[in-house]
């Protein structure tokens, strides 16, 4: 369906409950969720968070295939994390949980233990809760909504608007690049398929520099246009993309707080950040 031709992560338009949420409430949710997932290693809480994350994806109508590349990237990052942890501290799980259930020896001093596996499961849940949630935030919130949301938090609107401009700038450059590349190819410049990589890189670079300088120039023009249309004349401004706070917004924020409290409670109950099923 949706073909993101530039292959970049950006807003994906769908009609869903998640898209309809205010940017501010989504941001609060994301920030609180980040704190929660970072502080807790309680597997039950993490499973709950993971489940909620999956539910949010289902609600948002964003399919994992829409953000395939990013998910794979997270997976690779995670495998790297597992590999390095295991290489340098194969007994980390045992150290944390204070017991040792060896499953089978691998080689030398390396043993696979249930504790290590269980610890890895926790790390997996953390990664695949927080990062996809951040991705979901990006693909369901337009830069302008984000700006309006940030402004609602009291961040000066000039800053918010600049941030949204910067976010818009990236796909703009990519689109311009694509258009220009096509047209230059149609004028016989060596770019695109069937060209040696070296030549292609050189010619792309030749094209990219004027493109960026042109974009900067157009940024200047944009600023002039903005001024002419009254940007900056008042201390405040309103936002066309503003959304009224609705019941789902409250529900989302309340849930985020409850989850954070739950995580804090489990720390208190577990006498630490880890949930220990072994002892």
């Amino acid at each position: 369906m949706s073909r993101n031709k530039n292959g970049v992560l950006c807003y994906i338009k769908r009609d869903s409950a998640v898209h309809r949420l205010g940017a501010a409430s989504k941001l609060i949710w994301l920030l609180l969720l980040a704190v929660t997932t970072v502080i807790t290693y309680d597997t039950r809480v993490l499973l709950l968070l993971f489940g909620l994350c999956a539910f949010a994806f289902a609600l948002s109508k964003i399919r994992p295939s829409d953000i395939k590349a990013e998910l794979i990237f997270i997976g690779v990052l995670l495998l790297l994390n597992f590999g390095l942890t295991f290489a340098f501290a194969p007994e980390q799980g045992c150290a944390i949980y204070g017991t040792r259930h060896a499953l089978f020896p691998l080689w030398g001093k390396y043993y696979l233990t249930t504790e290590q596996l269980f610890y890895s499961l926790n790390v997996f849940l953390k990664y695949f809760t927080l990062l996809p949630m951040a991705l979901l935030f990006i693909v369901t919130t337009t830069p302008s909504e984000l700006a309006a949301g940030l402004n609602a938090f009291g961040i000066p609107y000039r800053f918010c608007f600049s941030a949204s401009l910067a976010l818009r700038f990236i796909p703009d450059i990519q689109r311009e690049y694509r258009k220009k590349s096509e047209l230059l190819q149609s004028k016989n410049v060596a770019l695109g398929r069937k060209v040696s990589p070296f030549k292609r890189i050189k010619n792309s670079a030749d094209m990219l520099l004027p493109l960026i300088s042109a974009q900067l120039l157009s940024m200047e023009q944009l600023c002039a246009s903005m001024q002419r249309r009254g940007f900056g004349k008042n201390k405040k401004r309103t936002w066309y993309v503003h959304k009224n706070v609705t019941a789902p917004d409250f529900a989302v924020i309340a849930t985020a707080f409850v989850l954070l409290l739950l995580a804090i409670y489990t720390i208190y109950q577990n006498n630490g950040r880890f949930y220990n099923p072994f002892g």
């Binding site: 337009t142 023009q221 246009s225 249309r229 009254g230 401004r237 309103t238 936002w239 066309y240 993309v241």
Partner: peptide, 29 residues
Amino acid sequence: IDMQFVGATIGEDIAFALENDCVAPADMK
């Protein structure tokens, strides 16, 4: 005309001057 637009979407662009005049979002729409 490329130099004219400041909004991310057409709606936002038409609304731009209104936003700067602090018009309430409902009236603006």
